[in-house]
Simulated assay, not measured.
Amino acid sequence: MLALIAGRGELPRAVVQAQDRPVLICALDGSPPDSVEASHVFALERLGGFLRVLRARGVRQVCLCGAVSRPRINWLRLDLATLALLPKIRRALKRGDDGALRIAISILEEAGFQVIAAHEAAPDLLPAAGCPTRVQPDDTARLAAAQGDRVSDAQGAQDLGQACVVTDTQVLAREDAAGTDAMLAGLGAAPGAVFYKAPKPGQDRRADLPVIGPATAQRAAQLGLAGLIIEAGGVMVLDRGAVIDILDKAGLFLWVRERPL
Rank of each mutant, 00 (worst) to 15 (best):
R259S: 11
F42R: 07
V15P: 02
D208H: 05
G99A: 15
A100F: 11
R102D: 12
L54Y: 09
Q218I: 02
G66F: 08
D138G: 14
A81C: 08
D168F: 00
I230G: 01
G213Y: 00
R77H: 15
D159I: 04
I212K: 03
E45C: 06
F50I: 05
A84L: 13
C164W: 07
E231V: 03
L24C: 02
L223T: 07
P22Y: 03
P32D: 13
A144E: 05
L247M: 05
L80A: 12
K88Y: 11
R57D: 13
T169F: 07
A118H: 14
P260R: 10
Y196P: 13
I103D: 14
K94D: 12
I89V: 15
C63E: 05
R46F: 08
G202F: 10
D239Q: 07
A111L: 09
I5H: 09
D98F: 07
I230A: 01
R46G: 12
G188E: 03
Q19G: 00
V135W: 04
V62Q: 09
D138E: 10
C131K: 11
L11E: 02
A185L: 07
G96M: 14
P210C: 03
A182L: 12
V68W: 10
V243R: 05
L2D: 01
R95K: 15
L24G: 02
P127M: 09
V59Y: 06
P210T: 00
L184W: 01
R219K: 15
S152N: 14
V16A: 08
G234I: 02
V23K: 08
T140S: 14
D34M: 09
A141C: 08
R77Q: 15
D153E: 10
A129E: 15
R174F: 01
P137F: 00
P214E: 01
A221L: 05
D97R: 08
A27R: 06
Q158E: 13
P260K: 07
R46Q: 13
F113A: 03
R77I: 08
C65N: 06
Q170T: 09
Q155P: 11
Q203G: 08
R91N: 07
A92M: 14
A226R: 13
G9C: 01
D181C: 02
L172W: 07
P22K: 04
I230T: 02
A163W: 11
V237K: 06
P33E: 10
A67P: 03
K249M: 03
A129T: 13
P123C: 11
D20N: 09
G30E: 08
D138H: 10
L83R: 11
P22A: 01
Q222Y: 02
E175K: 06
D176I: 08
R142T: 11
E231L: 02
G224L: 08
V15Y: 07
P12N: 06
V165W: 00
C63G: 04
A67D: 09
